[in-house]
């Protein structure tokens, strides 16, 4: 059904990518520079200001880099996806096409840019001698694929809510900011007090960055049973988000 519309998806996807820099020369540049600046600031705070003893002797820059780009891809695709239906209101009111394509193209474009930045930064870190191995790369890409599917499912869900409740985007933005600090992206799980650790570990992002670090730093190349559960959870999120979206999308035109 969606396969029939692959040309439309390709067009929307290309447009989403171009929209990031068309009209502003620095758009593409910022797509890479913004995460780099964040990386620099976090490294400054945690290795020069706080200096927790647990981090001494570790490659903190690499540690954060591995988790930061997936997080930004997730956060940005969710925030952009949430307002995507509104952004395409002009088309939705005038042209008949599957509305979900708008979400997929927005999420896919965001992931494309951040994955490209990720690979570039990892290559640079590897080139300067940081302990990275290529053997875990396919597994890491598999984890990215899971993240992409889960982000799409959530974006489908939140974009639907946003059509009806315009506050959604304003609530989501600070929530995402808070979630960043609740996930072991900027700090290792071992730094969390033991009785709170189980809560932080329950965050899906703990699994996600943990697997990325095992793959890229540890060189792990083979899936484990947790990956199967993650896949199952991802598929559930995607299908539930899509079902919700498709149930409500016939009414979008009335409300956007």
């Amino acid at each position: 059904m969606l396969w029939r519309h692959r040309h439309l998806f390709a067009n929307l996807y290309r447009r989403e990518i171009r929209n990031r820099y068309v009209g502003s020369a620095s758009g593409m540049f910022w797509a890479l520079l913004h995460p780099l600046l964040l990386l620099g600031v976090y490294t400054f705070i945690f290795t020069l200001v706080f200096r927790p003893p647990e981090l001494t002797g570790k490659h903190y820059l690499l540690f954060v880099a591995i988790g930061l780009w997936p997080w930004l891809a997730f956060q940005e695709s969710l925030l952009r996806g949430t307002v995507a239906i509104q952004g395409y209101a002009g088309l939705i009111k005038k042209v008949a096409f599957p509305h979900e394509l708008v979400i997929y193209s927005t999420v896919a474009a965001t992931f494309t840019l951040h994955l490209a930045g990720y690979l570039l930064v990892l290559a640079v870190l590897w080139a300067v001698g940081q302990p990275l191995t290529a053997t875990g790369l396919p597994l890491a890409l598999g984890v990215w694929a899971l993240l992409f599917l889960a982000s799409s499912g959530l974006a489908l869900f939140f974009s639907t809510i946003q059509v009806f409740l315009k506050d959604t985007e304003h609530i989501l933005s600070p929530v995402m900011q808070i979630l960043l600090y609740l996930a072991p992206i900027l700090y290792p799980l071992t730094l969390v007090p033991p009785d709170l650790r189980v809560w932080v570990a329950a965050n899906p992002f703990s699994y996600l960055v943990g697997r990325l670090r095992e793959a890229l730093e540890g060189g792990q190349a083979l899936p484990v049973s947790a990956d199967a559960w993650a896949l199952l959870g991802t598929v559930v999120v995607l299908l539930a988000g899509r079902a919700f979206f498709l149930r409500m999308s016939p009414y979008f035109e009335d409300f956007v």
Binding site: H7, A10, N11, V22, F97
Partner: peptide
């Protein structure tokens, strides 16, 4: 509808045609 003001006419033909169901 479906035209983006920043893109050229030729570029806009692509999306407009895709929206009307034309393949590449």
């Amino acid at each position: 509808s479906g035209f983006h003001p920043e893109y050229t006419g030729l570029e806009n033909i692509d999306l407009a045609a895709a929206l009307l169901g034309l393949s590449a």
